[in-house]
């Protein structure tokens, strides 16, 4: 099971990924794993926000603002999306002091 992106982390997308947009879908190629990944625009939007500066809480607040869903629901969805992206190897691993793989 992939490491869960912690709420205290500010996830960052892998810089080397190759992106191709087509209609509602986006294809992301991860050269590290040689994987071509199809994702929807919502997942891609979350991935775009992974700049190493933005916390999952900020992402959730923005999603809640835009979609009128409550923050807890938005936070759950954002965390799930981040877990999925992490599982696909599309996020850099962040190490906090005292943690290791």
């Amino acid at each position: 099971m992939p490491e869960t992106p912690s709420s205290s982390n500010r996830p960052m997308r892998r810089g080397q990924a190759w992106v191709r947009r087509h209609g509602e879908e986006v294809a992301v190629f991860n050269p590290d794993t040689d994987q071509l990944i199809q994702m929807n625009r919502s997942a891609f939007a979350i991935w775009e926000l992974c700049d190493g500066e933005t916390s999952p809480e900020e992402m959730a607040a923005a999603v809640a603002d835009l979609t009128n869903v409550d923050w807890a629901r938005a936070h759950h969805d954002v965390e799930q999306a981040l877990r999925d992206l992490d599982g696909l190897g599309l996020l850099e691993r962040h190490h906090r002091p005292g943690t290791s793989d």
Binding site: R21, S42, I46, L49, E58, A61, L66
Partner: peptide, 15 residues
């Protein structure tokens, strides 16, 4: 959908 990321980024910056 193609503009969703830009809008979320704007909302975060504004907040």
């Amino acid at each position: 959908p193609p503009l969703l990321g830009a809008l979320l980024r704007h909302v975060i910056t504004r907040r």
